[in-house]
Structures are given as structure tokens and as C-alpha cells.
């Protein structure tokens, strides 16, 4: 029983990390039809910047970590917004070319990170509490999972609040449903594009700092490897659906943890799950959007 609980909670923790990456991906795809291959680079860059600033403020302290998280958040949002303004906007409505540009940016930026920070993972130090465990019903849960889950819940709540309660949120929701109609009503959807990119980048940036806490290292390839899981999550959840991304990230991570523990085939189990979803429900669990 304690093993099952342990796997369940660590799975949800990993799912929280997936969600931070996948939420932005899914929103961006839903609104603009762009599959953002540079999303992993937002994550990696923020991870590095958060670590660089955080260790100067206070290496291994809570203050350092919180400052690092804030830096990651801001860096992710800024880089994503700049990417949208400089590269994506020029290729408006040419989806394949937009994907290709993000592919190129992803490849180039990872090479640049390797040049700056080296290709080997760098060990980081975090507050001592995060390396300890908490006992719940006889199972010892690593404390960093709570941080991940907490952050993901806050991000989810903030995004939902933004989408439901603000006028820009309204434009974005309407744009996901029917972009042509929103444009026809005289609303400039393009500003919403930049905002969605910034939000997705901020979530990924926070995810980058938290991923370095989770893995205990920062490396140039962290974003790329997480991105593939995030892609699987968005397809299973349904491209463009935020709630789908939330459910699918937890589902995928829990399946991965259990399959890894019992049979050692976590990655294959996910692909199998993806195959089943594609066969049974090609639009994903919650997907409606078709571009």
C-alpha cells in the first residue's frame, strides 16, 4: 500500500512538471495552430538563468530558490514573447513554416547553451528540506514533489482565472473556439498571440527552475527531453485544451511511474497509451479544436 501511495504521489509530482510545460504548448496550439518546438529551450534557458541568479543571491537557500523561480518566470515570458514577435508573427497563418522556425530555434539554442554552459549536467544545491522526505501513511514522499504540485496548482489556478475573468482571457478563449469569427468582430487577435506565448513561456520558465530542483541538475538537454513528454501529454489531453493537458499530464506521469516501478517500461507504456488514445479518440481526451 505504501508503495502504491508513494508511486501515486511522486507520479502526480512529475505530472505537475509535465503540466507546466504542456499547458503553454496546448494553449499556443489551441489559439494559433503552432506547435512550439522552441518551448523546451524556454525551459532550459530559464533553468540556467534561475540557477545563475539564485546561486548568487544565496546558494542552497530558500531566498535563492524563490528569486531563481521569479527570474525563471520572467525570463521564460520575455523570451517567449520575443520569439513570437520576431519569428512567429512574420509567418502568420503558415503553420508548417512556423513549426520549422521553432525547430530551427530549438536546435540552435540547445547548441548555444552547450557552448555557454557545457554539455554535462551541472549539480545544483537546493534548500535542505527539499532533499528530505515526509511520511504519509507509511510511505516516505520526497519533499520536492510538494513544491512541484503546489507550483502547478497555482499556475493552473492563475491561468484559469486569467482566462475566465479578464477581457484578454475572453478573447483567447473565443480565439481558440473560432479565430476567424473573433477577427471578423474587429478584435486584434495578434496581441492575444503574444500574451499566450508569454504565459506559456512563463509557465515553462517556472517549470525549468523546478525541473532543475527535481533532477538536482541543470543541463542543456533538460528542456528537449521534457518537451517530448509534454508533446505526448498534449496529444493525449487534446490539443488546445487546458483541462485536458492537466488531466493527461497527471495520467501520463502516474502511468509512467507505475510501469517503471513494476516492469521498467515507463516510456513504452506512455507510447502505448498514446497509441490507444489515437486509435480510440483521435482528437484526444478533451480535444475539440481542429485547425
Amino acid at each position: 500500500m505504501s508503495t502504491v501511495l508513494l508511486l501515486l504521489i511522486t507520479g502526480v509530482g512529475l505530472g505537475a512538471l509535465y503540466f507546466l510545460v504542456a499547458s503553454g504548448l496546448s494553449l499556443i496550439y489551441g489559439l494559433m495552430g503552432v506547435l512550439n518546438f522552441a518551448h523546451g529551450s524556454f525551459l532550459t534557458l530559464s533553468g540556467f538563468l534561475g540557477w545563475e541568479v539564485g546561486r548568487r543571491v544565496g546558494d542552497g537557500t530558500w531566498l535563492g530558490l524563490v528569486v531563481g523561480m521569479l527570474v525563471g518566470l520572467v525570463a521564460g515570458a520575455l523570451v517567449a514573447a520575443i520569439t513570437e514577435l520576431v519569428f512567429i508573427r512574420r509567418l502568420y497563418n503558415r503553420h508548417i513554416e512556423q513549426v520549422l522556425v521553432t525547430v530551427g530555434l530549438g536546435l540552435a539554442s540547445v547548441a548555444l547553451f552547450e557552448g555557454i554552459w557545457g554539455s554535462d549536467p551541472i549539480q545544483i544545491s537546493v534548500p535542505g528540506w527539499l532533499r528530505e522526505t515526509t511520511e504519509i501513511l507509511g510511505s516516505h514522499i520526497p519533499n520536492d514533489r510538494w513544491l512541484l504540485i503546489g507550483a502547478a496548482v497555482v499556475v493552473l489556478a492563475l491561468i484559469v482565472l486569467f482566462l475566465q475573468r479578464t477581457s484578454y482571457g475572453l478573447v483567447i478563449r473565443a480565439g481558440v473556439e473560432n479565430r476567424t469569427m473573433v477577427t471578423a468582430l474587429g478584435i486584434d487577435v495578434r496581441r492575444a498571440f503574444t500574451i499566450v506565448f508569454a504565459i506559456g513561456g512563463a509557465a515553462a520558465g517556472l517549470g525549468g527552475v523546478l525541473a532543475s530542483v527535481y533532477f538536482g541538475t541543470v543541463s542543456a538537454h533538460q528542456g528537449t527531453s521534457l518537451l517530448i513528454y509534454a508533446f505526448i501529454v498534449t496529444v493525449i489531453g487534446g490539443l488546445g485544451s487546458l483541462s485536458g493537458a492537466a488531466i493527461a499530464s497527471v495520467l501520463v506521469a502516474v502511468i509512467q511511474q507505475f510501469a517503471n516501478y513494476y516492469w521498467g517500461i515507463g516510456d513504452l507504456a506512455i507510447v502505448l497509451a498514446l497509441a490507444v488514445v489515437v486509435l480510440v479518440r483521435p482528437t484526444g481526451l478533451m480535444g475539440k479544436v481542429k485547425h
Binding site: F87, V103, G104, G106, A108, A111, L112, G115
Partner: peptide
């Protein structure tokens, strides 16, 4: 970083 140069070249070609 060869891949950086090639990646940026690729972006320029696409655009």
C-alpha cells in the same frame, strides 16, 4: 557550435 550556425541558417532560409 556548428549546430547553432546551421540552425540559424535554417531559420533564415525558412523565413
Amino acid at each position: 557550435e556548428p549546430l547553432f550556425i546551421l540552425g540559424m541558417l535554417f531559420v533564415l532560409v525558412v523565413m
